[in-house]
Design a protein around this nucleic acid. Sequence first.
DNA 1: AAAAAAC
Length: 565
Amino acid sequence: MEAFQLLSRGGLKFDKNRFKKDVELFNGKSKAESKKQLSNEDSELPAELDFFKYAQGGPSKRKERSTNAEGPAGKKRKIDEEESEQDEDDQDEEDQPKLLHQRHRVTTKGNNVPEHADTFEQMRDRFNLSSHLMANLSKYGYSHPTGIQSYGIPILLSSRDLAAISPTGTGKTLSYLLPVMAALGAPSGSSKIDGGSGVRAVVLAPTRELAQQIHNECLKLAEGRKWRIVLFSKATANTLKDKAARDKVDIIISTPLRLVASIQSGSLELNNVRHLILDEADRMLDSEFHDQVQEIVAACTRADIQKAVFSATLPANAEKIAMEMLSDPVRVVVGLKDTPLPLIAQSLTYVADDASKLPSLLTYFAQPYNPPVLVFTSTQPRASSLAEELVLNNIPNVDCLHAGMTKKEREDAISRMRKGESWVMVSTEVMARGMDFKGVREVVNYDFPTSVQSYIHRIGRTGRAGREGKAVTFFTDEDGPYLKSIANVLLQSGSPVPEWILKLPKPSKMKRRQMGKVKRAEMVNPARKIGKNDALKKKEMIEGSKRRKAKGQSKREAEEEDSDS
DNA sequence: AAAAAAC
């Protein structure tokens, strides 16, 4: 466990020169590294390592090596065109990354939907935004609002409840933070505040890392103001033991359970909360978080509270719960619901079984890749051991992050990632949602995601803020039952899918259970292993599907299955 | 369907 952390070179400054030195080091050292050198296009730095430009938001100079033989470019472009047709064409073409946001169609639903605003200046004029806020926006590079920002911000500034669905990396955080800031006025505890004392805004997020990231954003926007913005943790909860200290807090950002603990111990009141935001709303409303969140909602007793939920995905059941907790809500959907960005080039890779995954990943890293790469596994032990394996195989700058690690270890891993010191980050679902590492260009699903939502959020760690990204998903024989639903997501967002996968019908619930049993039977008798090569596998899967069809699963049944979540 | 995450 410590081994790979030692190797990950924590603490060093990240600059181009050091990078170059490392590259030179690799030159004389390992075969895998020198292979990477082969793709060097400019003399200065191997092209695949030159993500500095990318990290700064510039266009990628090496257009489409990443899509390999399958080349989805044609399909991708088609979708872009379709979307731009439906949107306003009055943008100038220079501002490439920003423009991409505007290309998505935006649909709104609700009573008297407040009109959207095309610029932050329009928002300022309509809603009297402070010069502080405007200055901080431009200071941190928010020059032009994204789709969700130009629709969501006016809605929230009009004191309406909001359910916002917008793809990963399209600026949802600012969409809810800006209106909260605009509404705050004087800091809590000052005599100018009307209508009660205490915390006035609460933002809930599913992981510590995400809460921390939101907190950072919040601090940027609040620069120059005296608001108290608290990232809620055990430590900060303790500093708020006496009511006088609590009454000076303006905004709390927290994970649900931490907040519930404080409410129950009587050390926190939410009776003055005027804004409650659920980020990653579908996650916050799933069975594990639902009761905690409802308890927090119940503790917010002000009648005029404004509530808003945000996510890139919102399955029907979660949307129903969300809509029930909102009053007279406006619903905004940017792009196609539950569809990733077309600028993420996605592909599926068959790896017969679990034992074949590591060799496949090593092959992946033996070819040119763009660090940092985010690798997702299904469990914490698998994340740890995979990270160790990669270190043992001389993959440089490997890091690991899962919720089984200590708070400090997690914070250190995040900070290495932010500094660009991690080239490969192996992690679990904890990193799947919300985390914004602008430099991430490649995501590898080492273990198959357990839901379409998980898939969309995981691959959404790349392709952020209008940049390109690449996502590779390994699948084994065991993943067969879920393969088609993911394949449909690829198709929807313009990435190519091998035809044989599309021919697979989605098995009914009963069949899925049966496949599960077969799976277990095979594991008992490992002597009989199938699916050694891809061709065999295709045959196997297609024949399986024919058998299922023959047994009487109608096409309509299959379609019905497709529509459930 | 199923693990992860939350304290």
